[in-house]
Amino acid sequence: MAVVIGGVIIIWLGLTMGAAGLRWLAVELHYPARLAAPVLLAVLETVLFLLFVPGTALLPPSWGWPMAGGLVAAAWLINGAVAGLDWHRNRPVKESPATE
């Protein structure tokens, strides 16, 4: 359970610290970059989880790869939801045709 909680904390900290760091540096990402940033973070988290979770001493040896797979799925789900919600909130609205 500690591995799952730690993995979710890593995902959450990556998102919040990335956003806080950009705000602190007064960096405003343009629309495509705001959508790509959580996806790139998911790629980084995937690499970290696949490298470090299977070999941890906190899990029985047979649980390493399934737990890493679950954390990778959670990373993509959470980061994808963040990108999807940002897209939904800020998507370009189609202009309705003007009627006269």
Rank of each mutant, 00 (worst) to 15 (best):
F52G: 12
T46K: 01
G55K: 05
L25Q: 15
Y31V: 06
P38T: 08
R23T: 14
A74V: 02
V53F: 04
T56F: 02
V4R: 12
Y31K: 07
R34W: 06
I9Q: 12
V82E: 06
W63T: 05
W65V: 12
G6K: 02
V43K: 04
R23G: 11
G69K: 03
W76Y: 10
M17S: 14
V82C: 03
L35I: 14
M17Q: 15
V82F: 08
V27L: 08
A36Q: 11
V8E: 01
G14P: 00
T99G: 07
V39I: 15
A2F: 05
T56I: 01
I10S: 11
R89W: 15
T99S: 09
N79Q: 14
H30L: 08
R23N: 15
L41V: 09
E28G: 08
I9R: 09
I78R: 03
A73M: 06
L41N: 10
M17H: 09
A83F: 04
A33F: 08
R89F: 13
K94D: 14
V3C: 04
A20H: 09
I11C: 04
L13C: 11
R34A: 10
A73D: 03
L50C: 04
L22D: 10
M17K: 10
A74N: 02
V4A: 09
P92T: 14
G70F: 03
T16M: 08
I5V: 13
L35M: 09
G64V: 03
L51Y: 12
G84F: 02
P61L: 08
L29M: 13
I9G: 04
S62W: 11
P97D: 09
